[in-house]
Design a protein around this nucleic acid. Sequence first.
DNA 1: TTTGTTATGTTATAGTATAACGAATAATGA
DNA 2: TCATTATTCGTTATACTATAACATAACAAA
Lengths: 152, 152
Amino acid sequence: MTHNHQHCITDALETAEQLCQQRQLRFTKLRRRVLELIWTNHKPVGAYQLLKALKTTDDMPAPPTVYRALDFLLQQGFIHRIASLNAFIGCCFADRQHVSQFLICNHCHNATELHDKRISGLIYKSAHDQDFKPQQQVLEVFGLCHSCQSAH
Amino acid sequence: MTHNHQHCITDALETAEQLCQQRQLRFTKLRRRVLELIWTNHKPVGAYQLLKALKTTDDMPAPPTVYRALDFLLQQGFIHRIASLNAFIGCCFADRQHVSQFLICNHCHNATELHDKRISGLIYKSAHDQDFKPQQQVLEVFGLCHSCQSAH
DNA sequence: TTTGTTATGTTATAGTATAACGAATAATGA
DNA sequence: TCATTATTCGTTATACTATAACATAACAAA
């Protein structure tokens, strides 16, 4: 069962479009293009990789251009940042409020987003036990995905 | 109940010393000095901050020097890297094998290390449910610590 | 000591991110 | 419609983080 990735892309762009409309924000050509590029696959992608990709179509904008688009997409929850990799990845649950939970394959570099409420709940509880008021959770699990386990 | 931080420092250095001896590794002057600097407080510290600090005592080594020391300390589990901050912090449980779990205050920037096996266990289980074989866990929770909640 | 190994010094450069300011574009109201 | 205002984007410069590559020094074992 191989997944139809074009479907992922279309879905993500459509969701973003709708949410921007709801929120009265501009889903500009640049922002759409960057989101589309991020959704090229399910691997986290660096800002400068995106810059290079934009070089071919548009004419090579400078770093701030892409970083601003990324900031917007992050703020709207359309993408996540993978801190351990200095990279960005499309969010599968953009329409729902949630924390950042990823399984990242060390071999093929695909990243799968979780939204496990037991984990986030337990983290929340554990933090509270320490009188700590959590505002943001970052969970990045590295290892081998199913496909890459057999190969290694 | 204010904590005696000198105790933390001494403890950490002693533990590192002993573990290096056990493992037949050299706890050189530089490595000890960097670890000591990291333990100045409980806030994550950047590599270039460490460099600046070394500038005063030793004579300003170049970046690779401090990065190599950091790599060593990381590998031995004497410190952790906080990916979200590009910073490093002393490990409170250097003598035990464990994953990286931190509560980081957005206000005072102190970081508290957890070693909650329920969390890591649940993450492990959740990953396995997805046929993912975890090798490394990174959990970084940002929010407000007890002291800073009252002030904000 | 000689030899091999590990650690450190040094120079250069790669990779990631933002500050600051000006131009262009889009939304708003007269 | 046009002027006003706010937002977005272009551009230059620069800060911050990290590593490659090679030379030298310190250490450990034979």
